[in-house]
């Protein structure tokens, strides 16, 4: 892949290379955060100064099927040593799937100084860069955040229903089999509780992982991303988009691509996603 600054992204500063991380990981205003699907992975080795954010333990409130509140986010950020001025660089396993999910949750609290390490953990490892097991001793801070903003980057079912009725763009990032209703869940994954198979009427299907080069895990160039989303899925540049998947994690990856790499001004992630819509009384679906 060509260097990030040559890929034509709308916001190239949202993506950093592994070399950038190697050069800047010691900067006091940079905080590396590893966020993985595999909860054991961080403890086996991570970039020396990287803190861990576990998506279930640190970001979710399982009792309300919601994310942490302002107090919870302030406690998390204080614990990992962040201030409002800190540049948080996320990386992780599975092509940064969980890293973009964490970044999206950060966006709800207005922490905009966030970036993704292109290629994720696997690229760092493949390049022979070192990993360490000791947890960094980063000084704690006292972090204060504004009220959580659930409007700008997050969509809820009533809003999605209006969005659909107005004929606005929806991107379903699940597998084609889930999209058509052939499956209720990812191939070989368990059914996550949806009674109906199919998709939200009008949605276009672009599986999330198509946005990365499978060989390196790096994001495709803007030209190739436009071919994918505007050529294939016929999104119109700049139009309002809602992304969704099964519970909102895969679609956070596509949200990141559309919002930051292609510069769509109004992209929201519907975290209720198919587990909500597929069960919702009165909500129409297509197969």
């Amino acid at each position: 892949m060509e260097p990030i600054e040559q890929r034509g992204y709308a916001n190239p500063d949202r993506l950093v290379s592994t070399q950038w991380v190697a050069d800047h990981k010691g900067d006091p205003d940079v905080l590396l955060v590893e966020s993985n699907e595999d909860p054991l992975l961080y403890s086996t080795g991570h970039i020396d100064v990287a803190m861990e954010i576990d998506w279930t333990r640190d970001l979710n409130n399982p009792l309300t099927r919601d994310y942490l509140d302002e107090a919870g986010f302030e406690a998390l950020m204080s614990r990992i040593g962040a201030t409002r001025e800190t540049n948080v660089v996320f990386y992780g396993d599975r092509n940064n799937w969980w890293a973009t999910y964490a970044l999206w949750v950060f966006s709800l609290f207005g922490h905009e100084r966030t970036k993704i390490m292109d290629g994720g953990r696997q690229k760092w490892v493949n390049e022979g860069r070192p990993l360490y097991q000791s947890v960094p001793n980063r000084p704690t801070t006292t972090y204060r955040c504004p009220p959580r903003d659930d409007q700008t980057n997050r969509a809820f079912r009533d809003g999605v229903l209006r969005h659909m009725q107005e004929g606005k763009a929806l991107v379903d990032v699940r597998s084609p089999e889930e999209f058509t209703g052939e499956r209720l869940h990812m191939p070989a994954y368990p059914n996550e509780g949806a009674l109906r198979g199919g998709h939200i009427p009008g949605a276009k299907n672009v599986p999330w992982a198509k946005a990365v080069d499978p060989a390196t895990g790096e994001f495709l160039s803007a030209t190739r991303l436009r071919e994918l989303y505007e050529g294939g899925a016929r999104l119109k540049p700049g139009e309002e988009v809602v992304t969704y998947c099964r519970i909102g994690e895969r679609s956070s990856h596509t949200w990141f691509v559309l919002k930051y790499l292609l510069g769509y001004p109004n992209v929201r992630n519907y975290d209720g996603s198919w587990t909500e819509w597929g069960n919702l009384v009165g909500a129409p679906i297509e197969r």
Binding site: E37, M186, P190
Partner: peptide, 12 residues
């Protein structure tokens, strides 16, 4: 063994 905080994919 692993706790209940596994992702759906991981647990499967």
């Amino acid at each position: 063994l692993f706790g209940r905080e596994l992702s759906m994919g991981k647990s499967m």
